[in-house]
Nucleic acid binder design. Sequence first.
DNA 1: TAAAAATTAGTAATAATTACCAAATGATAA
DNA 2: TTATCATTTGGTAATTATTACTAATTTTTA
Lengths: 132, 132
Amino acid sequence: MNKLDKNEFRLTNQRKVILEELKKVKSHPTATEIYDMVRKKMPRISLGTVYRNLELLSNNSIIQKLDFGEAQKRFDGNPTTHYHINCKGCGRVDDVDMPLNQELDELAENATSYKVSSHHVEFSGFCVSCQN
Amino acid sequence: MNKLDKNEFRLTNQRKVILEELKKVKSHPTATEIYDMVRKKMPRISLGTVYRNLELLSNNSIIQKLDFGEAQKRFDGNPTTHYHINCKGCGRVDDVDMPLNQELDELAENATSYKVSSHHVEFSGFCVSCQN
DNA sequence: TAAAAATTAGTAATAATTACCAAATGATAA
DNA sequence: TTATCATTTGGTAATTATTACTAATTTTTA
Ligand SMILES: [Mn+2]
Ligand SMILES: [Mn+2]
Ligand SMILES: [Zn+2]
Ligand SMILES: [Zn+2]
C-alpha cells in the first residue's frame, strides 16, 4: 500500500509510462535512457517530467535511485534492496541474486557508535563479454 | 612503491599539502572542503589544482575517491579498502572498523557470470548526535 | 645553460540536475 | 453541470560540480 495506491499522487499517463518502461528492463537505465525509452511511447514528454517523476517515485520507494560513481544516476524498477555488480570494462550494472547479509548490520553496529539501519553492497568485476 | 615513490610524477608543494591535509583528517572531506583546508596553508592555490591532484592521487591509489550519492564526491586519505557508514541525519561519513568479508566476492561470483574483483559496502544509520 | 616536460593559476566550458512558471489536466463540491 | 482548487506538465532558465583550456611558471634533462 504505497502512496500511489493511497491516491496521494496521481497516476498520470507520463508517470504510468515511465514506470512501465522502467519495470520492463533490468538494465538499470539512466534518466536520459529512460527519457529515450519513454519518448517512443510519448514523443512530447519533457526531460524535466522524467526527472521529476523518477525523483517522486524513488522518494516513495516505488523505484530505486542508484549511484555507481558515474556521471549519471541509475534507476531500478525493483524497489526491494538487493546487491549490484558494476562491470569495470563496459560499465553495465547487473543484479546479484544472493541473499542479503543481515549480520553485516550487526557487525557494523558493534564496530561504530551508530544506530545502523541498512547497507548497500556494490561489487565490481568484469562481465562475460569484457573478460579478455 | 607507488608512482610517487617511483618519481613518475613530482611531489609539488601543492600536491604535498593536499595530501598532508587530507591525511590529517578522518572526515572524508569533499573537494571544496579540502580546498578550504589547503588554502589556509597555501592561499593562492586554485580549486582546479585541488581537483586535478585529487584525481591524480586517487587514480594512483594513494588516496580514495568515494561516492555516497550526495552532490559532491568525498575523499579518503586511506587508500586501503574499508567499509563506511553514512548518517541519514547529518550526512557525516565514518569508517567502520570491521574486517572485509571476502567470501562476499565468492558468493557474488557464483550468483553471476562476472569475474568479481572487489566489493564496497556502505552502511546507513544515525550517528550519536542524530539519535533522537 | 638551453630546451623539453610537467605543473600551475585562472578562467571558460560541460553536463547533470533542479527550479521556475504559465498552461493544461484532473478532482471537488456547490 | 460548472466554478474553483490543486496537481502536473512542457519548456526553458538556473545551478553547480567537475573538466578542459591556456599562457605562465617551475622543474628536469641533456
Ligand atoms: Mn537491480
Ligand atoms: Mn574511510
Ligand atoms: Zn563489461
Ligand atoms: Zn548524524
